[in-house]
Design a protein around this nucleic acid. Structure first.
Length: 697
RNA sequence: GGGCCCGUAGCUCAGCGGUUAGAGCAGGGGACUCAUAAUCCCUUGGUCGUGUGUUCGAAUCACACCGGGCCUACCA
């Protein structure tokens, strides 16, 4: 692939504001993010755009059920989505919303174009209406008895018992799932796009533009393009949460109209912020002028919208068409569909509470080969692969050699390594080609082979023996470690699109931030090296178990609280992150005498009050039993409600020298746990039965 | 019913017309001790779903069948 400069606009499908991000969604966002980071690392101009998909009946219904406005609902979900994405290091250049002024404006422009081309028509549609809720009902909001086999409680579009399909109006004894009311058939005008008028264009574009995998093009040809395309129902009658159609009051654009236009709106907003020109991305170019590339990453479930309706809209509006529609499959967990009852319906944030996001990014990368097949998250394999590849091979390379360079830094000249660095540099061509094809699995395989060679090198050179051989071998030792660290950093460059955080850490260790793919082609010389810290912790099976247990618990919330003492400590394995300890290594050894100098006592909180001027402090009055009380300022404000503290037992350092603080004298210290892995401050409680004044020993 | 994809070592997969079919993990044996029980070497293990065909030659192409998955369909 020639290295001509490219301008690449990349999108992921817009997540719907009706639910939280889960590991299935993340297949797409991680895949896209890797692709984008790769392009940027290669020096291309690349922007990654996405947005929340906010409109539609489902949002309206949900907001009502929760007793708040749609805007409040979508704002809250947006925050949650952004936080989840940030947790997984998904780096959008812009993240918009379909409920934005830019999107409204662009919807209007596309709509005008459709009108101008005579592609809009109106027709009455008979639909069920819920007279209590006052809304038209989508098929899935109606249940009733199957008209064919009389099975009860079936959806409005098809019967799960006999497989019959019908319209919601055919159901016997239909009921609205919103209000329970019996719906009535009402007629309402809908607007349609007569997409058939673009049939010829679509047939040609899907077949020969190169944007679509031939298998998909074939599928489209066989299922849709083999007959006249049906008019696309593009409007919904009020009430509907969305944009009202300017020239058709009382009608709203259907969510699938404004969702893809969200790509345009996000571009527009990004341009406004960064000073780019919208036209430079979406304007159709004439002749051989170099256009921007447009890559859409989507799941196979929305193929139809992105390969027929969306290009039709762009064509009608005279905008640039997608260069590639990259379609991926679904995620299964342990070989089966994600399941709430098995605890495998894993939310992004549940994962993040237990495991490192980089590990999922790597695992997905190792699985994704650019095809449309589903990928499986096998949790045992996940554990084994992440540990073997990332910890055992890659991180270990630095872990076992960095220390030899502590005093000296890298050798002034890169030594003879038998051609290892050059070989891995040459691999860069293949690795880059694999990234470009979204065949990340092939890229990872090639990278790991290089890691294997590097470890074999260290093994053969035996730097630990050189270290013991004394000053005569010092030069050789430095050379060997220099080779190892260079091979390590080279791997980090190749892995940077997948493991951005890891790449940063490697940059901190040696050589500074990794900014360019080219850094894989030249070894570093004569540089100092930072202190090696564990860059990644092994995954323990217990951590995975704990994640599943939590996911299971959250999916099926317990309404009956467990009585104390029956908590299933034995059946639900505890699994603890290594992070807190790793972040704060153990202090120097102390003797029992040292320990007994600290007099730790059980105490009862008698009173707790806010200190308004203090950022972190609560003023506590504690009892050590009898009438011995102390005043203690504790740095737990924001983590504990004062009122909920009163009466509880805690542990205090009772013989701590009193300290004059800004707000008063503190006569002790309440001990609490804090550290990496969780932000809170956690008070300690003794088992029940302990009494104030008892000493800890 | 139609269409598509998949079926290669215990597991995940690569190979997709050409020498005795490969990798990682798991299993077995050994080495080393620098490293997060990590690393390195050796090794066990496959009639490449089944059958028929095309070909000098097939895991690789064709057809049929079996098994798994996905999409789509009230007929064609």
């Amino acid at each position: 692939m020639p290295n001509a400069h490219r301008r690449i606009l990349v999108t992921s499908a817009l997540p719907y504001a009706n639910g939280h991000i889960h590991l299935g969604h993340l297949v797409e966002y991680i895949q896209t993010d890797i692709f984008v980071r790769f392009q940027k690392l290669r020096g291309q101009t690349c922007i990654y755009l996405c947005a929340d998909d906010t409109h539609g009946t489902a949002i309206m219904i949900r907001a009502r059920a929760e007793g708040r406005s749609e805007q409040e609902l979508i704002a809250a979900m947006r925050e949650a989505h952004l936080s989840d994405f940030a947790g997984f290091q998904i780096a959008f250049d812009h993240y918009g919303s379909t409920d934005s002024p830019a999107n409204r404006r662009l919807c209007g422009e596309i709509w005008s174009a459709l009108r101008r081309k005579g592609l809009v028509t109106a027709r009455d549609v008979r639909q069920l209406f819920d007279p209590v809720a006052g809304v038209f009902l989508a098929d899935r909001f109606v249940r009733g008895t199957c008209p064919k086999c009389a099975a009860a409680d079936q959806y409005g579009d098809s019967c799960e018992q006999c497989g019959a399909t019908y319209g919601p109006a055919d159901l016997v004894a239909p009921k609205s799932t919103l209000s329970g009311a019996t719906p009535e058939v009402r007629s309402a005008e809908h607007l349609f796009v007569t997409i058939e008028k673009l049939h010829e264009f679509l047939a040609e574009w899907t077949r020969s533009s190169g944007a679509i995998d031939p298998r998909i093009a074939n599928y489209l040809a066989g299922h849709f393009l083999c007959e006249p395309l049906r008019d696309w129902d593009i409007s919904r009658p009020a009430p509907y949460f969305g944009f009202e159609i300017p020239d058709a009051p009382g009608h709203y654009w259907y969510v699938w109209f404004d969702a893809p236009i969200g790509y345009l709106a996000a571009t527009s907003e990004w341009c406004e912020r960064s000073g780019g020109a919208f036209e430079s991305w979406w304007q159709r170019t004439e002749g051989n002028e170099a256009a921007a590339e447009i890559h859409h990453f989507i799941g196979k479930d929305i193929t139809y919208f992105h390969t027929l309706f969306w290009p039709a809209m762009l064509e009608a509006a005279g905008l640039a068409l997608p260069t590639k529609v990259r379609i991926h499959g679904f995620l299964t967990v342990n070989g089966q569909k994600m399941s709430k009852s098995r605890g495998t319906f894993l939310l992004a944030r549940t994962y993040l509470e237990h495991l490192d996001p980089g590990m999922l990014r790597y695992y997905y990368a190792a699985k994704l080969s650019g095809g449309i097949d589903d990928i499986d998250l096998n949790l045992e394999e996940f554990t084994a692969k992440v540990n073997a590849d990332l910890v055992g091979k890659v991180v270990n390379l630095a872990s076992r050699t960095a220390r030899w360079l502590d005093g000296t830094g890298l050798s002034p000249r890169y030594p003879d390594d038998g051609g290892l660095f050059a070989a891995a540099a040459a691999d860069g061509t293949e690795i880059a080609a694999a990234y470009e094809d979204c065949d990340f699995a092939r890229a990872m395989r090639t990278i790991m082979l290089a890691a294997d060679r590097a470890n074999a090198y260290v093994d053969a050179e035996q730097p630990w023996k050189l270290a013991k051989a004394g000053p005569d071998a010092a030069g050789r030792l430095q050379d060997v470690a220099t080779v190892a660290i260079n091979l390590f950093r080279q791997l980090a460059v190749y892995l940077a699109p997948v493991l951005p955080r890891f790449a940063e850490q490697v940059g901190d260790l040696v050589g500074g931030p990794i900014r360019s793919w080219e850094e894989s082609q030249r070894p570093l010389e004569a540089l100092g090296i930072g202190r090696f810290t564990p860059l990644m912790q092994r995954v323990e099976a217990a951590q995975v178990e704990a994640m599943l247990a939590q996911s299971l618990a959250e999916a099926a919330p317990q309404t009956v609280p467990l009585s104390p003492g029956t908590a299933s400590m034995t059946t639900q394995p505890t699994a603890d992150s290594a992070e807190p300890l790793a972040a704060e290594p153990l202090a120097d050894t102390c003797t029992i005498d040292d320990f007994t100098k600290v007099d730790l006592r059980v105490a009862r909180i008698l009173a707790a009050e806010e200190v308004p001027e203090a950022k972190k402090l609560l003023k506590l009055t504690i009892s050590l039993g009898g009438d011995v009380t102390r005043t203690v300022f504790a740095g737990i404000k924001g983590f504990h409600e004062p009122s909920s503290l009163v009466g509880r037992l805690v542990v205090v350092v009772a013989n701590l020298a009193p300290r004059q603080m800004k707000f008063g004298l503190s006569e002790g210290m309440v001990v609490a746990a804090s550290g990496a892995g969780a932000g809170g401050v956690y008070l300690l409680s003794p088992d029940s039965g302990a009494l104030p004044g008892m000493r800890l020993r």
